[in-house]
Amino acid sequence: MTDSVYEISHLTLVPRRHIGRIVGAVAVVGILASIVYSFAVGQIEWSYVAEFLTVPVILRGLGNTIVMAVCAMLLGLALGVVFAVMRLSDNPVLKHTAVAYVWFFRAVPALLQLLLWFNLALIFPTIGFPGLFSVRTVDVMTPFVAALLGLGIQQGAFTAEVVRAGLQAVDKGQYEAAQSIGMPRLQMLRRIIMPQAMRVIVPPVGNEFIGMVKLTSLASVIQFTEILHSAQNIYYANSRVIELLIVAASWYLVVVTALSLIQIRIEKFYAKGVRPVGGEA
């Protein structure tokens, strides 16, 4: 008699209804559709967007943006590694110099730093080595150089902290094992410690690189002809402000998407020998 109560395999299963999900999905689709519709019927001449997407001035600006982002990031990475290693040094002078560097260049806004470098001639009319050579600062401090120094040096301060986190994430036993096969300090960092630290370093550095691509737009204020500056130059002439901003935005999307794909590749490379989370040996 009781058996029939506990026997449930012949009953039909009615799935639970997700009312909240349906309501949410309808609302989101509605909002998205209205945004797309308003852009489609708004005061935007899409033909201008298509026309200006590939004009030489924009492409040159795009090229400058990429070159500046890569150069400033390389400078930032080099400075970051050097100052992170200094920060972990036993030498108090090196250590505190690194602390001060990070403190200063992380605190002062990037835009302000760009203006400082660009106007360096106001403090030092000439730079050089007394008696050997000397050049006028305005000749050296071109928009490119000022932007490279301003962006690269402040990036170094952020990267130094990322690299330090990576170096500290490597197990102490790895340092000892490398030392006990007779490796000197620099070789140990290069061959054993850095490759392992990279796993921790790459995701935030990828993040910072994407930030750098967009930060180069600040350099338009010191007359560096990156892509936003080029777009502005065109719309000053033809007044197609929104169309040209859309052109610039499209290119930023393309560059950042490409960088994200490269980052995934690099992360895979440094994941060598790491067991995937939850995976079996």
């Binding site: 197990d171 036993g173 000892e176 094992a177 054993i192 392992q196 060598k272 020998g273």
Partner: peptide, 10 residues
């Protein structure tokens, strides 16, 4: 070492 300390990336 007690904890082996093999280089995991090699």
């Amino acid at each position: 070492f007690q904890r082996f300390n093999l280089f995991p990336h090699l």
